[in-house]
Structure formats: structure tokens, C-alpha cells
Design a protein around this nucleic acid. Sequence first.
DNA 1: TACAATATACCCATAACTACGCAGAACTAG
DNA 2: CTAGTTCTGCGTAGTTATGGGTATATTGTA
Lengths: 208, 208
Amino acid sequence: MSIRPIKVLLVDDHPLVLEGINSVLETYSHIEIVGAASSVKQALEIATQTQPDVVMMDINMSDINGLDAIELFKEQHPRARLLMLSMHDSKEYISTSVMYGAFGYVLKDVSTNEIVSAIETVASGETYFSTGVSDALLTQTNKSPLTTREQAVLVLVAEGVSSRIAAQILDISIRTVETHRKNIKKKLNIKTTVGLTRYAIENGLINV
Amino acid sequence: MSIRPIKVLLVDDHPLVLEGINSVLETYSHIEIVGAASSVKQALEIATQTQPDVVMMDINMSDINGLDAIELFKEQHPRARLLMLSMHDSKEYISTSVMYGAFGYVLKDVSTNEIVSAIETVASGETYFSTGVSDALLTQTNKSPLTTREQAVLVLVAEGVSSRIAAQILDISIRTVETHRKNIKKKLNIKTTVGLTRYAIENGLINV
DNA sequence: TACAATATACCCATAACTACGCAGAACTAG
DNA sequence: CTAGTTCTGCGTAGTTATGGGTATATTGTA
């Protein structure tokens, strides 16, 4: 714990969640909330002014998607540690977000105290993952994740695009799209298109 | 505004949201939070003990789905006014939930002050819908909602069950299931099965 | 360079879904 | 009881998806 308080920037488009985090954190003197943003763009601006140590951000922001948001922060504010907040236990998304440079991943249904631990840990330079998340990561590591192309196909499928149209969009043969679909299902052990859709939603690959 | 404070029971499985609402409401002396539950079952128990005037509940609870939860409350606590909280602007769900007996519908991204107005309005016996919701209702009123049977089919479809299996489950002909699917799509103006799945998830008909 | 992984593409048979339309039975409200 | 809605069921034809393989560029990297 350093002499000066940990400067935290909150980013979430749900005022009630912001209010909740605020309310939890304001009782701690070693944590200072330097700002609250309801969009990624706004968050980037506030970060420029306030130079936060930790940015606590919802992965489901409406203006910019989670992974892109991480990238933007890494570019523009490399010193800020990113702590991602999520509604879901987004298995695959977690490892991806770590690769993108997130320092931690917390589920929104964690106990309020855990938020404090997460912020302290991330501020100290270590990584933090809430309980459910660690399990997800562990069970995930030995399973091969989807390739970039497969993810692209999955997103289209989950958006309701038929294989034929997806092929047009990606400018590949419909056969290829079908092969990808086949491989994705095999990897994820999912049998139906509906299952793919739900998987994509759960893992934040598309916005509901 | 009555002499005694409005007794409010909060139901949400996200501690941060509970904390947020709590934090907003605790500054108002005419509103008293008599309990906070993280599941519908727990909420029903607390309601028995505390007899709340208003129950403010997330439509996406993990133990019991939104519509069933409304029904349970209407049965067991008919005097409590239900104010539903939702992440999404769930078009049809809104009118359905009203039919089921909800007194109001508020989006989670509303300003914190609006929560107070909503509670006051609902407590007085009137209905309350936040801005985005009213629009959705207006554009919806002339469209017929899904029938009970259609909803049943939709749920099965969205769970990834094939028409053939759904027919077995409902003990009807596969033709009938197909007809229902056809009519559902027509009513909702949705073209693909994936669209139906997403619709069901958005509207809390199934749990992700 | 050579191996592994990835992305690409095709074939075939079967299963499932889609889109039209039509219509009787059962239930509900006035 | 009548009218309207809902639930039920069928036909036909066409489209799409599934689950088996197989196979060839390309790419990354050890």
C-alpha cells in the first residue's frame, strides 16, 4: 500500500453499478475515485486528465467493444492497469482479454469486498481474477481456443447470418464457412446453431 | 406521499447493483429499504417477513425467470407492487410483464433519480415506465404478443431443442411446432432461429 | 528447411428448417 | 350461442445445416 491513494477510474454505462462501486469504495481512504465514465471515449478523456492507476471497466460498453477498449487504453494510457468487470463468466473471453493486456477480471456478482482486493492487487502490479474466473481459466488452458478466423465466423453465425451470406461477407467459399462451423462445434463440443449463439453471447463476442 | 415510509424490497443477483440502488435510496427518508435478496426464492421469504410495498426486481434472475417470478409474487404477495429492472429495452417483454401484473418497468441505465420517481409512482398505485420503455410500449401496442403456447415453443427453440424433440416434449405434432415457429417469427418480425434465440435471451425467457 | 497449425475448398447423404397455404377443434368473451 | 382467437395438424417444395471424409495452399516457427 503506497503513501498516496490508488487513483481509480470507473467505466460502466449503468449508473447504478457506478453508484454501487462508488459507494463501496468511498469508505476506503487508500482508494480515490478520480472519475466515472459512461463510455469508453469519455473514459479515455478523463484518463488523460487524471492519470488513474487503475481503470475498472465493464467489458460490455455500448460504444466500443471490450477488447478494442483494452487496446485503446494500452496505447494511450500504458501505465493504467485495466481491471475488467463482467456480468458473465466468459471463459474464452477471459484468456483473450489477458492477452490483450488486462490485469484482472472480476465478475459483477462478486462480493463488494472483493472489489477492493482486486483493485489493491492490480494496483500493485499483479494480476487478479475472481474465484469463478480462475476456474474458468484453468479449465480453459488445455483446450484449444478458437482461431481468429473461426471467431469471425462464429460472430457472424451468432448474429444470425446464414453460411451463404457469411461466405459473401468474408469473401470465401461457403464450403469454407461450413468447415469452420463444423470445427468450431467440434472444439466447443456444441451441437446446434442455437448453442453457438448462446456461447457467443455468454462470452461477449457479440452484444445482446 | 404517505405518513409512513414506502417499504422497498430489492432483488438482484448483482451485489454492486444492490449497493448502487441502496446508496441512491438511503438519502430519502420517505423510502425504507426493508431487504435485499439475491434470488427470487429468498425474496419471497423476505417479503413474507417484511411485507414490502414495492418489490424492485431484476428480470434476469438466475434461479427463476422473470415472468414466473412475477406470477409467484402476485400469488404470494398480491399487495406488493412489482417494479421490474432490466438491462435491455425488451420490447415485447414489457407488455407481457404488464399483463403478468408488473406495475412498472425501469431500465438499468436510467439516471439514479429516476429510480426514486419510479418507486414513488408505483407505490401510489400507478404504473411507471422509463422513457425508453414507453417508446417501446407505444410501438408495440398494436402488435399482438405471443400466446402461451408460442412462448413455450420459443423457449424450447431457444434452448437449442429441434422441432422434432420439441414436439415430443410438448406432446404435439412436429407440424404444429413448425407452425408455431412460423407464427412467432411473423409476429416478432424475426427471420432466423438465431434471432429467436437472441430474442429469448434479451427478454429473459431463458437464462443464459 | 521442415513440421505444425491454419485457412481454404470440395463431396455426399441425411436431417432439419422455411415458406407458402389450408383447415378443423377447442377455448374465450360478449 | 356466435364470433374471434388459439391450438392443433397437414402438404409440398425448396433451402439450409449436419456430419462423415479428404485435400491443398499458406503461414508461422522451431
